[in-house]
């Protein structure tokens, strides 16, 4: 078999294994709950029979391993279980399917994340590469210290500064990103502008710094010096000699930062009351609605793992040593 294929398959296998172990960790969070949590969910007035029925519904009367496989089987079919909220002591169950709560929120979050990525990725690659090429110039120093400052800012600080300036002082954008399914696309973009800008500022700072470091590292290779000594022009050095070797580090930087976006989105959504997955998760954590937390964690972690996996695969298939084995 071609070594690329076997390396990629190996890497995919490892990714699947990681997903599997992560799913076990997320599943077992239920195991760590205190024994009387049924009471806590249903309220002190709940009858022992109601609590018992609730425990049976969660399958707590069966061994954990069996329960895990039932759970993961359901998850694979898109069934993330039923939320804790909406139940009460009387046994009347108004709880909702976790998936039905997550789905619309997930779409909103994906919308925000892609909007951010579309602005942030090209911008930071441009800034990072130019800063690396004009290293130690005034431009480089300004970009560098600006980004060093930005990464030191908590996300909510960046977000509130934007609200203060662009929403309450100059009324350019709305401070509450109030969107729903039937909002028109243009309106959606307008209302999501501030959260997207806030996220962009945070991501660009990280991504630009990492891109710059990766390019500088690359430009220090002896084969770049050799190209200079062959009289190759600056633009050709970049295009012919640096770029073909730069894919792996650049894709890694992008994937790492898109994964970081997953985290940043939680805080920014809360600030702008954006109806996304992060907001849902924080609410669920506050009310200790474990199935919803599990569902959200699974989706966030899965995205994160897949993005990193994708970057790994790209760096494998662009590696000349693997592309052209001995």
């Amino acid at each position: 078999m071609h070594p690329i294929l076997s390396t990629v398959i190996q890497r995919l296998g490892l990714g699947l294994l990681t997903l599997f172990i992560v799913s076990i960790i997320i599943f077992s969070s239920l195991e760590f709950l205190p024994g009387d949590f049924g009471q806590a969910v249903l309220g002190q007035a709940a009858l022992p029979e109601t609590v018992e029925a609730f425990r049976r519904e969660l399958g707590l009367d069966r061994p954990p391993i069996e329960r895990y496989f039932m759970w993961i089987g359901n998850v694979l079919q898109g069934d993330l279980g039923t939320a804790f909220s909406g139940r009460n002591a009387s046994g009347v169950d108004r709880s909702r399917e976790v998936w039905s709560m997550i789905e619309p929120r997930l779409m909103n979050t994906l919308f925000l994340a892609s909007m951010t990525a579309i602005i942030a990725v090209p911008l930071s690659l441009f800034l990072g590469i130019t800063a690396a090429l004009y290293r130690n110039s005034i431009y480089d120093r300004v970009v560098n210290s600006t980004t060093l400052t930005t990464i030191s800012f908590p996300e909510f600080f960046v977000a509130y500064i934007l609200i203060l300036v662009f929403s309450t002082y100059f009324k350019v954008f709305p401070s509450l990103a109030n969107i729903s399914d039937d909002t028109a696309l243009g309106e959606k973009i307008y209302r999501s502008a501030l959260p997207a800008i806030a996220l962009t500022m945070v991501i660009v700072a990280h991504m630009m710094r990492m891109t710059r470091a990766a390019i500088i590292n690359l430009l220090a290779s002896p084969y770049i010096e050799m190209a200079e000594l062959k009289g190759v022009s600056k633009s050709q050095i970049i295009l012919r000699h640096a770029l073909p070797n730069a894919w792996a580090p650049i894709v890694n930087v992008i994937a790492f930062n898109l994964a970081y976006l997953v985290v940043g989105v939680v805080v920014v959504e809360v600030v702008f009351v954006y109806p996304g997955l992060g907001q849902l998760m924080v609410d669920a954590v506050t009310s200790r609605d474990i199935p919803v937390v599990q569902g959200c964690a699974l989706i966030f972690a899965g995205t994160y793992i897949l993005l990193n996996l994708f970057a790994d695969v790209i760096s494998i298939i662009t590696n000349p040593r693997l592309l052209h084995p001995r």
């Binding site: 002896p222 084969y223 050799m226 000594l229 073909p244 070797n245």
Partner: peptide, 13 residues
């Protein structure tokens, strides 16, 4: 110019 470390001085791509 002929460099000392040939392995590092050729572009792997």
């Amino acid at each position: 110019y002929v460099a000392q470390s040939a392995a590092a001085s050729f572009n792997p791509a």
